[in-house]
């Protein structure tokens, strides 16, 4: 139980620090999707029910720290991502940081599509013009490339956190 609370708290902290840090670094437009990486990690290590609850918490934090997205958007996106990745985790072997990098990039693009779709359906303040949609689509690949390098880093940090909380040093990599 402790490990899940620690992971959720960790995600809360990185999401809380991400925005001010990027603002100070004048890089607010280049925000990696750190919540997504935490969700990927949870999907690989957690039992389904516990993992889903943890992911909903992470999604709720992401919604809370996001100043533009309607509440529930990231919860839904991350929950769907979790469901899919959790299923796939039984068939995917993470052999090292490169595979995490690739997984993160692919998940980032998929979650961006999901986010766009949900925005188009539910967010009435979202500008549904073709131009806006085009801009969002064009930003997906850069967003994925920006997020991907953080995958192995966050995985390593979460691994260290787990070692502290469970007093076991099991690697997520096979």
């Amino acid at each position: 139980m402790m490990r899940w609370i620690a992971i959720v708290l960790f995600s809360f902290l990185i999401l809380a620090f991400e925005s001010p840090l990027l603002a100070k670094a004048k890089a607010g437009a280049y925000a990696p999707d750190l919540g997504l990486i935490v969700v990927l990690y949870i999907a690989f290590i957690a039992p389904y029910e516990v993992g889903l609850v943890a992911v909903l918490c992470v999604g709720m934090f992401k919604d809370a720290f996001s100043m533009t997205a309607p509440l529930g958007l990231h919860m839904e996106v991350l929950a769907l991502t979790f469901v899919v990745v959790h299923r796939l985790s039984q068939r995917i072997d993470l052999r090292g940081p490169v595979s995490v990098l690739a997984l993160t990039a692919a998940a980032s693009i998929a979650s961006s599509f999901l986010e766009l779709g949900l925005c188009l359906i539910f967010d009435q303040s979202f500008n549904t013009s073709a131009r806006t949609t085009g801009v969002v689509l064009a930003a997906m690949l850069p967003q994925a490339l920006l997020t991907a390098p953080f995958g192995p880093v966050i995985f390593w940090l979460l691994g260290q956190l787990e070692s502290l909380t469970t007093r076991k040093s099991e690697s997520i990599y096979t």
Binding site: E49, P70, M75, A79
Partner: peptide, 24 residues
Amino acid sequence: HRPTIFSLVGLVIPLLLLYLHGRS
């Protein structure tokens, strides 16, 4: 059917929240 129920609840609650907060 616990996983399915969890999935339904876990996916429907955010959708409801999104529906509520997506209105303008």
